[in-house]
Amino acid sequence: MPKKTLDPLPSAAFQILLSLAQEDLHGYAIMRQVAEQTDGRMRLGPGTLYSSIQTLLEAKFIEEVDVREDAKLGRERRRYYRLTVAGRKLARAEAERLGDLLRVARARKIFRGDYV
């Protein structure tokens, strides 16, 4: 079942995978990381965020690591998520797919400059 909802990979799920590439994060940190890496274009709401997390968890692309406090955000305990090997693979595959797309786009000269 999760295979279906992740194929093709929704951009929210891809962004979450990317956000976890560097370090383990909790929900709110994922959201901020995603907003940052998309220049604020994608702000994940709780519903989208956690249903994506749920799907990715079920497909074992991410896993829960532990529950601890975030020193910067007060004393609330938060659940942290980590990218699995399969998740990293999936993110790489998706990035490559996008890279291919980008090459095609470049070849078709749809970009004005050559800076991409």
């Binding site: 709780p46 956690y50 249903s51 749920q54 659940r79």
Partner: peptide, 12 residues
């Protein structure tokens, strides 16, 4: 979903 993520969503 509520049981699993309701508290976290609220936290967020």
């Amino acid at each position: 979903f509520r049981r699993a993520y309701g508290e976290e969503a609220l936290q967020l």
